[in-house]
Design a protein around this nucleic acid. Structure first.
Lengths: 162, 162
DNA sequence: AATTTCTCGACTTTAAAAGTCGACAAGCAA
DNA sequence: TTGCTTGTCGACTTTTAAAGTCGAGAAATT
């Protein structure tokens, strides 16, 4: 129904999230992130390397090396990550109407373009409204919830918190 | 950035849209729809055949055969089409947290699940709020606009109308 | 009967995502 | 300065799902 977010993007968000969790502990190694977030290490390598060029994260080599966040989690949105990964190319294009040939009435926006734009905008809004700090806060809440209740009870309040 | 809606789904919407345009003219043949909407004919065959089982469209064989809409365009939403095509399976699953193994904190919703849910919900809302009639109305508006202006002028009011 | 159309399942192709690798460069520590 | 450890980089391979094709058959129509 809703097209799945690419794994690469998910990994990227999770990795940044993990860095946020460990902020202040000095650089975190790829291997640590990979283990904590269950991401294929060699693949994560590629992702982080690319992500570095966004300026969102920094790296250091050698024995005490690793990655670290370059700004506070509250100042990084999921949208920042997504936007960088997919480049400005894929930013605003309508699904059917960008390629001249595949859309019968492509001259000046077809009957569908408004809808595709609204979909894009809707997704973007969520991403841009969600900071890494928000995700961090979610985790804390969930942990507290888990501690308070008997283990393994089915989740009750799902999907409300940002 | 925003994952592209599958072509199959786009084709389906466009096909239903085309049927809506021709409502009242008797059954429309696959070949006609394919030509009008620039969809590979043999592929459209598969799509329409499947879509038929949703009850949204009807078919008739033989010389005067073809497809037709089974309800008024105002009573069909894009969501109806999407929901049927992807089945109830893909309906509500979070990107990373449905498979036990791929998400480190999968027990009762991870820090991310709320966000993925919000994305899903956002997209769904647009789809469910958009009827085929709405799309029809868009087309009429665009046509009128085109007639009123000198040809090939750049689009001005883009992405506002439903 | 002949033609036209949809029907159905199986099949092939294509493209992108996902994942891997080897060699190298930088930093630390003994 | 030698030898670890870590990130860097480009090229490569694998896997997967989407996209598209096909042939034979079944219902209508003339």
């Amino acid at each position: 129904m809703v097209p799945m977010t690419p794994k690469k993007n998910q990994y990227a968000v999770r990795a940044v999230f993990e860095l946020a969790k460990r902020r202040g502990e000095g650089p975190t190694k790829i291997s640590q992130i990979a283990r904590a977030q269950v991401i294929p290490e060699r693949f994560l390598e590629v992702i982080l390397n690319k992500l570095k060029r966004s300026g969102l994260i920094e790296s250091k080599r050698g024995f005490t090396g690793g990655y670290s966040l370059s700004r506070p989690p509250a100042q990084i949105t999921v949208g920042d990550i997504m936007r960088f990964l997919d480049g400005p190319t894929a930013a605003m294009n309508c699904a059917a109407c960008t390629e001249t040939s595949s859309c019968p009435s492509h001259r000046r926006g077809c009957a569908f373009s408004a809808m595709w734009n609204r979909v894009n905008q809707a997704v973007l809004s969520v991403y841009n409204d969600t900071t890494i700090q928000d995700l961090l806060d979610n985790e804390i809440h969930l942990k507290a919830q888990r501690r308070r209740r008997p283990p393994r009870a089915p989740a009750r309040t799902e999907g409300q918190r940002l």
